[in-house]
């Protein structure tokens, strides 16, 4: 829960990706409470392990200060 809120409100995208991973781990724990341990492990293996890494790689391909520059148009980099 807290993690998912942090995903949305965080301005720095890499931080958001980190909290996304944490959220996905906790979602996996919810699967475990539903007695589906295979789905839980797959959730961690694929979603928590792989997808945020892909996101972080993608974020690095884009401009980092994309949020800051919206505030100050003449900003460098």
């Amino acid at each position: 829960m807290i993690g998912s809120i942090l995903v949305v409100i965080n301005k720095r995208l890499v931080r958001a990706a980190f909290w996304l991973a944490m959220t996905l781990v906790t979602i996996g724990a919810i699967y475990l409470l539903f007695l589906s341990e295979f789905v839980f492990l797959i959730q961690i293996l694929v979603y928590a392990g792989a997808v945020p890494v892909l996101f972080v790689f993608g974020i690095m391909l884009t401009r980092r200060k994309i949020m800051d520059e919206a505030a100050e148009p003449e900003g460098g980099t």
Binding site: I44, P52, V56
Partner: peptide, 19 residues
């Protein structure tokens, strides 16, 4: 599913390293 659990635990490290 113990072996899969170990592999899943291993798979979390790349994100930590990247960050």
């Amino acid at each position: 599913l113990g072996i899969l659990f170990i592999l899943a635990a291993f798979s979390l490290a790349p994100l930590g390293i990247l960050i």
